[in-house]
């Protein structure tokens, strides 16, 4: 069963993401959540999710550091990472930080876009 990990320090955002992905969950995908980078890395090592939706702005360990660790230290290259960045942040500059993320989506995210992309990634369409 493919696993999708949602990482955001704000619980209501996790809630919204989870709700957006409800139909994917019903189609047989497992959704798990982490509220900080450390927790996220533990869960990634344990579950090897197909997709991580990763918030950039988090206290302690930010999304870039988490992503960098996923791609370089955990060598989880089959884990697809979508970074959630705030609207107004320049995507180009963020990309320049070279954390190895696969994709970027701005917040407030478009729920349909998230669902569409997730389907593609876990190849359940």
């Amino acid at each position: 069963m493919p696993v999708i990990l949602i990482v955001d320090d704000e619980s209501h955002i996790r809630r919204l993401l989870r709700q957006s992905l409800e139909e994917i969950e019903e189609a047989g995908c497992e959704l798990i959540e982490a509220e900080n980078g450390r927790e996220a890395l533990e869960l990634i090592e344990k579950h090897r999710p197909a997709l991580v939706l990763l918030d950039v702005m988090m206290p302690e360990m930010n999304g870039f550091e988490v992503c960098h660790t996923i791609k370089n230290e955990l060598k989880a290259n089959d884990t697809y990472v979508i970074m959630l960045t705030a609207k107004g942040q320049e995507i180009d500059r963020i990309k320049g930080m070279e954390c190895g993320a696969d994709e970027y989506i701005t917040k407030p995210f478009d729920p349909d876009e998230i669902v569409e992309k997730s389907y593609k990634i876990i190849k359940m369409t």
Binding site: L16, Q19, S20, K87, P108, F109, D110, P111, D112
Partner: peptide, 11 residues
């Protein structure tokens, strides 16, 4: 979520 979609659209 529904309202979120709308705001997103307007943005």
């Amino acid at each position: 979520l529904d309202i979120y979609k709308e705001i997103n659209l307007l943005y």
